[in-house]
């Protein structure tokens, strides 16, 4: 949620109540306020198709409210009828009569001239991994497996730091160009990639280290069928890196972002 916008709308609603505005204005203001909230109030914007559904529901609800008693009906229809019948508003009425169809026509024009966008294929953010993979002729069990160096964290911290440092080297020689210096998908080639690379700050705490290893070693070409899209530029690093280097890189990713990998026991197993 974008707090300032939400607050602003909430304050505006409070103001409406405080000022005891006319029902017509009240209804219009609520409609607009809710629209602003839905349209701009969320950090991840809501698609317009869903906003249409929601605003349809809100419209019906507001209509129901303003017509739910005779007083409210009068309060809302009075100004409208006066606007349409009294002579002093005639000019304004004429303007409205012309302007509304013009707006509708403009809307049609805009809708018919939407920019062409290539078809979109649904994307699975974290497709399920297979039970095991083969990397460099070695079978790696993704369900039960662990990062072979993770245990060093407690048993031999110095050695562990060495592995992390090696992972740092691997990252900055191979990954940084896309995934970026801060691992928030801000590498120098990001503007030329679609979909954009993973932001490691977001979700790796929900994942197991073996999952990261799978994604690194098999890359985009190794995605399962439901794990599209197929435009991803992530290469299968097993072609270029040693197994240990990939495990070290995984260590480094967690170390740098300050996240902990998900343990085996937390994963739902059948």
């Amino acid at each position: 949620m974008k707090i300032p916008i939400v607050l602003a709308v909430a304050v505006a609603f409070g103001l409406l109540r405080f000022l005891r505005v006319k029902l017509l204005i009240w209804a219009a203001a609520w409609w607009i306020g809710i629209y602003i909230l839905l349209r701009f109030g969320f950090t991840a914007p809501i698609p317009s198709s869903v906003i249409t559904i929601y605003m349809g529901i809100v419209s019906i609800a507001i209509l129901a409210y303003v017509s739910s008693s005779q007083e409210r009906r009068d309060e809302i229809s009075g100004p409208l009828i006066r606007f349409m019948t009294e002579k002093r508003y005639t000019l304004l009425l004429a303007v409205a009569v012309v302007a509304i169809p013009a707006l509708a026509a403009a809307n049609v024009y805009v809708r018919m001239n939407v920019s062409i966008e290539p078809p979109l294929f649904s994307r699975t953010v974290h497709p399920a991994s297979p039970a095991d993979i083969t990397v460099h002729d070695k079978r790696i069990d993704l369900d039960a497996g662990e990062n072979p160096f993770r245990h060093l964290e407690t048993s031999n911290p110095q050695e562990f730091r060495k592995h992390v440092e090696n992972g740092r080297r691997v990252y900055y020689q191979n990954c940084v160009f896309c995934h970026g210096d801060t691992m928030s998908a801000n590498g120098m080639f990001v503007h030329g990639l679609d979909p954009i690379p993973t932001n490691f700050h977001d979700t790796i705490a929900q994942l197991r280290e073996t999952f990261l290893f799978w994604r690194i070693s098999k890359g985009g070409p190794g995605l399962p069928d439901e794990g599209g899209p197929w435009d991803t530029a992530m290469p299968a690093w097993e072609k270029f890196l040693q197994e240990d280097e990939m495990w070290d890189a995984v260590l480094f990713l967690y170390d740098f972002t300050g996240q902990r990998p998900r343990g085996r026991e937390e994963v739902a197993t059948k």
């Binding site: 509304i100 169809p101 013009a102 509708a104 026509a105 049609v108 024009y109 018919m112 001239n113």
Partner: peptide, 12 residues
């Protein structure tokens, strides 16, 4: 787009 625009405007 002209046809649909005119139609919509007229309808409204």
């Amino acid at each position: 787009a002209v046809g649909p625009m005119v139609k919509t405007a007229l309808l409204i």
